[in-house]
């Protein structure tokens, strides 16, 4: 470690006392300023939480939390208004589940290929493409879903409209792929070569080594990758807003149009009277969304920590 305020003894001879005192003061000031900036991440995260609570919790003075969570009727402008967000929650659940079901096998397969099988030239070509995918803005993905994918889904499943939870989920799966691929690949690479060698030396084939040594060894890292992918899918807004269909009924099938929580906030906030009941209700949804992604991320972090202590040496 570096030493605090390490100053050589020879400095005494050349510098006057006052100059040295000024230096020390400057160091102290800078140090405090840097410390304050270091805290900023905590401040912002807490700030988000406090603000969401301040703006969102008052809605529970009007409607009970149970009714809010499990009610299926969201009529913010009728008289009296009712706020039940189960519709949105169910939609979020559908979309997240299906997108994860698609993205996990594809993403982990791709990661395994890149980390274990692909020649390095190919890997160096594919990885930028995956990064490219991560860079495409969500509104552009929404556009693709809206104009290209939804007609396809409509004709394949013979639906009234192609704007459905399924369509949104397919687009979301693409958007969560980059993080699943890159975190899983890192996890696979962290598996020490000793284990691969031991497996080969026992006469296992390359695939058997991948399947029975590398993937089990990277499992917690892969699990974390999946959690992070899930977190993205839950929080993604534009794509589901444009593609999921926005229907206000509890979706019973993924091919129905639906409105996930993020889309509900995005489409409602523009019309909500500032500080009014609907405004508060949307912030309350935001609060729940925040807590959901927070817990998913915390779990992913825990799992990743565990990975570091296992197959890696």
């Amino acid at each position: 470690m570096l030493q605090r305020g390490a100053s050589p003894a020879t400095a005494d001879s050349g510098l006057s006392m006052s100059l040295r005192r000024r230096w020390r003061l400057r160091e102290k000031t800078i140090e405090s300023w840097i410390f304050l900036n270091g805290l900023l991440a905590v401040v912002v995260l807490l700030g988000v939480l406090i603000l969401l609570m301040r703006e969102g919790l008052p809605v529970f003075l009007y409607t009970s939390p149970l009714k809010f969570l499990f009610g299926t009727r969201w009529y913010p402008v009728s008289e009296p208004p009712t706020f039940g967000m189960l519709t949105f929650f169910a939609a979020t659940l559908w979309v997240t589940l299906i997108s994860t079901a698609i993205a996990v096998p594809v993403g982990v397969g791709c990661a395994a290929y890149l980390a274990e099988v692909a020649p390095s030239k190919l890997r160096e070509t594919v990885k930028p493409v995956v990064e490219l995918l991560a860079g495409i803005p969500s509104v552009v993905m929404g556009l693709i879903g809206l104009l290209l994918l939804s007609p396809l889904v409509q004709s394949i499943f013979n639906l009234n409209t192609g704007l459905s939870g399924l369509t949104a989920a397919i687009m979301l799966s693409m958007m969560s792929l980059p993080i699943i691929v890159s975190v899983s690949e890192d996890a696979l690479r962290a598996v020490s070569n000793e284990f691969r060698e031991a497996s080969y030396a026992l006469g296992a084939t390359k695939w058997e080594t991948v399947r029975h040594v590398c993937i089990p060894g990277a499992l917690s890292g892969i699990a974390a990758a999946i959690m992070l992918g899930v977190g993205r899918a839950i929080g993604e807004t534009m794509t589901v807003l444009m593609v999921a269909g926005g229907a206000l009924a509890v979706p019973l099938s993924p091919t129905e149009p639906m409105m996930p929580m993020t889309a509900a906030i995005a489409s409602g906030i523009g019309n909500a009277v500032r500080g009014g009941l609907q405004y508060q209700a949307l912030f309350a949804i935001g609060l729940i969304l925040f807590l959901m992604t927070l817990s998913v991320n915390l779990i992913a972090d825990r799992v990743l920590e565990r990975q570091k202590r296992k197959f890696a040496r």
């Binding site: 020490s192 000793e194 284990f195 060698e197 031991a198 497996s199 030396a201 026992l202 040594v213 089990p216 060894g217 296992k310 197959f311």
Partner: peptide, 13 residues
């Protein structure tokens, strides 16, 4: 032809 390595490397199983 089996092999035993320099560092013991049992699988974490």
């Amino acid at each position: 032809v089996g092999m035993v390595f320099q560092k013991p490397n049992p699988f974490p199983m």
